[in-house]
């Protein structure tokens, strides 16, 4: 299990400044979609009950099949919602006074942990695009590092501007410290 007190490859005197996940609205969207699917069997059975063949719900074969299908539907809906939550919960970005760490769960049995030292950071860009991101203040932060082709990417995090400022500030301190040591 991961603990912020036992970071992967923890450096001496390293302090956690921020632990970020996707904005809560992303989770709320998942929950709303789940709730919508939750009422689907009720809506379908209502439609069948009010149709011209309402007895189809209570037939000697159709009733057991209906119960089995509803049970199957709710069990798999619940487990897929759990997977969806895991995908949200296990994607974490950690900003420390030494580095930024990206922990990403890519489906099951695929997990990526990448890190960048703060003194290697060259450019930090925040991006808020769209209606909900603007209203709810969430968006992306891109971190460009020296020599790296791929940019470090914080996806749909709350207060991206504030996070960008924090990274820039910490990177400057880190660069000064590195220059002082050199």
């Amino acid at each position: 299990m991961l603990s912020i007190y036992r970071l992967p490859g923890k450096l001496p005197d390293e302090k956690v400044m921020k632990v970020l996940r996707r904005d809560l609205f992303i989770l709320v969207k998942k929950i709303l979609f789940f709730l919508l699917l939750l009422i689907l069997p009720f809506v379908l059975s209502y439609l069948v009950a009010t149709s011209i063949f309402p007895e189809i719900l209570f037939g000697q074969i159709s009733y057991p099949l209906f119960i089995l299908l509803v049970s199957f539907f709710y069990l798999f809906l619940w487990v897929f919602f759990f997977f969806s939550f895991i995908d949200y919960y296990l994607d974490v970005w950690i900003i420390t006074n030494e580095r930024i760490i990206n922990i990403e769960q890519q489906g099951f049995f695929a997990r990526t942990i990448s890190e960048q030292r703060l003194e290697r950071i060259q450019d930090v860009t925040s991006e808020v695009e769209g209606f909900f991101p603007t209203i709810l203040k969430y968006g992306n932060v891109y971190v460009q590092t020296a020599g790296a082709k791929e940019r470090f990417f914080f996806s749909e995090i709350p207060n991206p501007d504030e996070v960008r400022d924090t990274i820039i500030k910490l990177a400057e301190i880190s660069k000064k410290r590195a220059a002082h040591i050199a």
Partner: peptide, 18 residues
């Protein structure tokens, strides 16, 4: 479904925050 559930709980326990 049971196998899926086990995989989900395993991932939470192995990779989730303590």
């Amino acid at each position: 479904w049971l196998i899926f559930s086990f995989i989900g709980v395993y991932h939470m326990l192995k990779f989730g925050f303590l």
